[in-house]
């Protein structure tokens, strides 16, 4: 019974990843692409690893899987944030003001780009 649930969860994860890849081809701007691709990664990893935990039952093997899940969930979004930030500061921030200062100014002005 537990295995069937696991296989269903893994299947759901794969379906979401396929839809996500379709999304990447739909969006052309860089920031939309990075949004969609980070979604694919986190959704894919959560569902597939949870599905595998159900498939393998609860033993040492699935404990390591959960450790991997925790690490990837911690580092994944952080990594895409840093890429998006360096892209934003590199392309837009540098032209007007210096990178770091532009963020401080932007906080005061609060204008939506």
């Amino acid at each position: 019974m537990l295995e069937i649930i696991g296989y269903i969860i893994v299947a759901i994860g794969l379906i979401f990843m396929i839809i996500g890849v379709v999304g990447i081809y739909k969006f052309n701007g860089f920031y939309e692409k990075i949004l969609v691709s980070s979604k694919i990664d986190t959704v894919g990893i959560i569902t597939i690893i949870l599905g595998l935990v159900f498939i393998n039952g609860f033993n040492m093997f699935s404990l390591r899987l959960l450790l991997l899940l925790a690490i990837v969930l911690l580092l994944g979004p952080l990594c895409t944030h840093i890429i998006a930030r360096s892209a934003f500061l590199g392309e837009k921030g540098e032209k007007g003001e210096k990178g770091e200062k532009s963020i401080k100014k932007r906080r005061k002005v609060r204008k939506v780009e």
Partner: peptide, 8 residues
């Protein structure tokens, strides 16, 4: 940054 995103 597109390449960086691809590698990620």
């Amino acid at each position: 940054w597109d390449y960086l995103l691809g590698i990620n």
